[in-house]
């Protein structure tokens, strides 16, 4: 760090970060504040749309209407399901990748991380094609005789969950993989030499040490599922609404911007609360053993 006594050094950091600061105030904070204000306005077709009068109408509507309860609950349940599946699939995969070496490792990494660079819309389309009643999954299941009638995956929770796991599991693999990289390569040998079986080494030595990676990966997956839009919209259709698609419909369908804004604000608040409490929990639990 440079000395703070030098007056140039007191001004320079502000100068250097001022373009970013201006951008964030003008294009990030102001729009968010506007949205917050908008959420307290009301919508009345007879009075020409948005009415700039402060009221809690939208929040009362969202928080008291069982229709919205259902949507928030579905979003939450979806996020939990996707997160759990990502942990169960992504953690072992990261561990397997970690134990591979050379060419195969790079190929597998590419196959898992590459899809991150492909638009969510494209990846979701792939699942839509697979899920169709004449899709590959149904055709092959029918052909080998596992099922008699096509199973419904399109416009079901199962379908949305499968596709979201596909979209988000790379984040889990990356997060766990990063914490495996920090693991001492000899740690497993140390456990074995002390008489532990490979399973005990995995459960009592490896998993506890990569727990921070699993937890931070879960947080990313949870937050991204809770606000996912394109995948639930395409695969869930009109019936399986989540918070993001509901806000979208309020904005661009019914044009009730204040109500849409209120839904968005609630999503943001829920997100921030969950992320910060979760981070606090992780910090308290691991501050002593891990930095």
């Amino acid at each position: 760090m440079n000395t703070l006594s030098n007056p140039v050094n007191q001004v320079r950091p502000y100068l250097l970060s001022s373009p970013a600061l201006l951008l964030y105030i003008g294009l990030f904070m102001i729009p968010l504040i506007m949205t917050l204000m908008l959420s307290f306005y009301s919508y009345d077709v007879d009075r020409g749309g948005v009415v700039a009068e402060f009221s809690f109408t939208n929040y009362v509507e969202v928080l008291s209407d069982s229709y919205f309860h259902g949507i928030f609950f579905r979003t939450f349940a979806l996020s939990i399901a996707v997160t759990v599946l990502c942990v169960l699939l992504g953690t072992p995969e990261a561990y397997i990748l970690h134990r591979m070496s050379g060419r195969w490792k790079s190929i597998c990494m590419l196959a898992i991380l590459g899809p991150l660079l492909v638009s969510v819309v494209v990846r979701t389309l792939g699942w839509a094609i697979l899920f169709g009643s004449k899709g590959v999954i149904n055709e092959s299941l029918l052909a080998i005789g596992v099922i008699d009638t096509p199973i419904k995956l399109m416009f079901t929770n199962t379908g949305v969950i499968i596709a979201l796991v596909h979209v988000l599991v790379p984040f889990m693999v990356l997060s766990v993989w990063a914490s495996l990289q920090k693991l001492d390569p000899m740690i497993e040998n140390a456990g074995l030499s002390l008489g532990a079986s490979p399973f005990i080494v995995l459960r009592q030595i490896v998993v506890p040490q990569i727990m921070p990676g699993i937890l931070s990966g879960s947080l990313i997956v949870f937050a991204l599922t809770a606000s996912a839009f394109a995948t639930p919209s395409i695969l869930g259709g009109r019936r399986l609404k989540v918070v993001a698609t509901t806000a979208y419909d309020e904005y661009l369908g019914t044009l009730n911007w204040p109500l849409g804004a209120a839904i968005a604000v609630l999503l943001l608040v829920a997100n921030v609360i969950i992320i910060t409490t979760y981070n606090k929990f992780i910090e308290r639990k691991y501050s002593q053993a891990f930095k």
Partner: peptide, 14 residues
């Protein structure tokens, strides 16, 4: 940290 849907809503109004 901010869901993109929230940013979308905010930018549209702004």
């Amino acid at each position: 940290m901010v869901p993109h849907i929230v940013l979308g809503v905010a930018f549209l109004s702004f």
